[in-house]
Design a binder for these strands. Sequence first.
DNA 1: TTCCTTGCAAAACTTTTGCATTAAA
DNA 2: TTTAATGCAAAAGTTTTGCAAGGAA
Lengths: 136, 136
Amino acid sequence: MSIAEIAERLAAHGIQPTAQRLRIAAVLLSVPQHLSAEQLLAQLVADGARVSKATVYNTLNLFAGRGLIRPLSVDGVRAWFDSNVEPHYHFHDIESGALTDVAVPEVQFSRLPAPPAGMEVAGIELVIRLRKAPGA
Amino acid sequence: MSIAEIAERLAAHGIQPTAQRLRIAAVLLSVPQHLSAEQLLAQLVADGARVSKATVYNTLNLFAGRGLIRPLSVDGVRAWFDSNVEPHYHFHDIESGALTDVAVPEVQFSRLPAPPAGMEVAGIELVIRLRKAPGA
DNA sequence: TTCCTTGCAAAACTTTTGCATTAAA
DNA sequence: TTTAATGCAAAAGTTTTGCAAGGAA
């Protein structure tokens, strides 16, 4: 994805395209992936980008608030961000912590509860925890 | 639930029944509920129990490891523990943070993905995020 | 005695915030 | 010139850990 395309996507979400935001978006959106703030910062530093930790956190929250990325709750320890905002689910390897996408058609709900009165469903987060199979 | 019954449940999970663990279990298991470590500590202190923060965390991790309670990942901020270990799902009010149980029969999966080779499903965590409905 | 548990405090880790500086509109 | 974004460091919040003291087997 070119810088111009990234800038366009930011603009489409009402986000000013600063140098740091472009670098951060370039990493996040290069490939569908799941990253923590620390991992993202490490990659940016490795790439030679001049970005501070505060800006990484601020930018992740900004992007998430504007729907450019999706925050995930897979462990209670730290926040994860998914650069794929299309509906989908996740496998979570308990031991390694690895996250793998599960495409929507792989899961079918034949029944879902109606939300309580006055409420509507904002999203469905499904995490299938995996462990090593006994015989494996 | 009497002290003796609580001690029995601990024993059934291979947990030595110390004074602090009994107090902690008494709070957790009194009613099916969702608690954070800090909330649990606050309640214990309010009840006049002599328990330290470290013991609360250690005990929660011990209980979770032995299957007496279930850790929940509903936000990336802190860990939640559910005293109901029977399979079930959750509504999560984004605004207030409130957690509500969704009984198993309320959700039916007509299709679930097969786990990757050598892996088995350890659990399914389903969180339905709720927001205020526009007209409400 | 021996082993396990607890409390306290400190440390580790994740995330947010205050504020001066810099960059952009 | 006015506003917004950034970096740095400090602070805040959550969880873990080291270690001495206490309690149970």
